[in-house]
């Protein structure tokens, strides 16, 4: 599955995370946020993960870092199973950048102190001046002015706040970063800048990314390979070009169509003959999870749940119709 050939940096197998939902009317129910997802990420690779909100992509990212404990499956990082071990030595190797930059920075800490938290976690015994140089260096890495160190988060713009979030993650010199919707809460102009920064950092520092977003056009710009998630399952996994230009799963095609047209002509050309847009189909008890919205569902889709299988080399898809379409 791994295009890099050698051992992948991160390998997850059949990872599961279930939540119990208590509802007075309907009693207890189980939400299968992540339901048996397997994938590999090679060194210096960017794996994009797309899906709509509630599909479990964020939960997957957090479960990989063990910020939430997985309920099943295994996580192997750099050849070692980290599913049950004490994560402390791995914290400096794996990092996360969050979606909402205003929420992920402590409003009562100055920017310098926020970044210092990472610096202290990595190297607690630095002298004062070394520590200060580290902080200024990190600010420079993310193209922020040194005087930002003395400001509070609310004094910065959204894009600058996100840069601080990235600097904090970089402070421990990680090799793997989960980017959890890092640009979704930002303005378009900032989005482009942050993506550029992340790509630049990857090149300079040799980082590996798991890039999570609901927007395929953003993921596409960042990723080598793309995984598409739907309701806790990985439904398609392939090279970015293949996912975008030869999507195998009907849901992937729906995601591509959802991207707003880049110009009015394309918008007019797109035949808007969408059958039933009515939201919230609910999760079917059995069969393919997408069967109720799928435009090419056949009877078998309502009975059998498809597994992720290869449709062409390096291109995997979980659809009962598979490559037959």
């Amino acid at each position: 599955m791994d295009k890099m050939g050698d051992t992948p940096l991160l390998k997850i197998e059949k990872l599961k995370k279930y939540y119990e939902i208590r509802n007075k009317a309907r009693g207890k129910s189980i939400l299968r946020a992540v339901d048996g997802v397997s994938l590999n990420i090679g060194r210096r690779e960017t794996l994009g993960l797309v899906g709509e909100s509630g599909c479990g992509k964020t939960t997957l990212g957090r479960a990989i870092l063990r910020l939430t404990e997985p309920d099943g499956g295994s996580i192997t990082y750099d050849g070692r199973d980290i599913t049950h071990i004490n994560m402390f030595p791995y914290r400096s190797r794996m990092q996360i950048v969050f979606q909402d930059p205003s929420d992920c920075l402590d409003p009562r800490c100055r920017i310098g102190d926020i970044i210092a938290e990472g610096v202290d976690a990595k190297a607690p015994k630095l002298s004062k001046s070394e520590r200060r140089d580290m902080i200024y260096g990190l600010l420079e890495t993310v193209s922020l002015a040194p005087d930002c160190a003395h400001r509070y988060p609310h004094e910065l713009s959204g894009g600058q706040q996100q840069r601080v979030g990235i600097a904090r993650a970089l402070a421990v010199a990680p090799e793997f970063i989960v980017c959890d919707e890092p640009v979704s809460a930002l303005d378009v102009s900032y989005q482009a800048q942050i993506i550029e920064l992340l790509q630049d950092l990857q090149e300079r520092l040799g980082l590996t990314y798991l890039f999570i977003s609901h927007d395929l056009s953003v993921v596409r710009r960042m990723s080598d390979r793309i995984g598409v998630m739907y309701l806790g399952k990985l439904v398609e996994l392939a090279k970015a070009e293949d996912v975008v230009f030869h999507p195998a799963h009907p849901y992937t095609r729906a995601l591509i169509e959802a991207i707003p047209a880049p110009d009015p002509k394309t918008a007019r050309e797109r035949s808007r003959t969408h059958a039933d847009d009515r939201a919230d189909p609910g999760i079917p008890d059995k069969g393919c999870r997408y069967c109720r919205l799928c435009e090419c569902a056949v009877p078998v889709c309502h009975i059998d749940e498809p597994e992720l299988t290869s449709v062409s080399p390096g291109h995997f898809c979980a659809c009962n119709l598979g490559h037959k379409q």
Binding site: E52, S53, H214, D215, L216, A254, L255, E257, A258, I259, P260, R272, H274, D277, A279
Partner: peptide, 11 residues
Amino acid sequence: LDVTTQAQIIR
């Protein structure tokens, strides 16, 4: 909203 929902709302 995410992209799929956005497309629905726009439609």
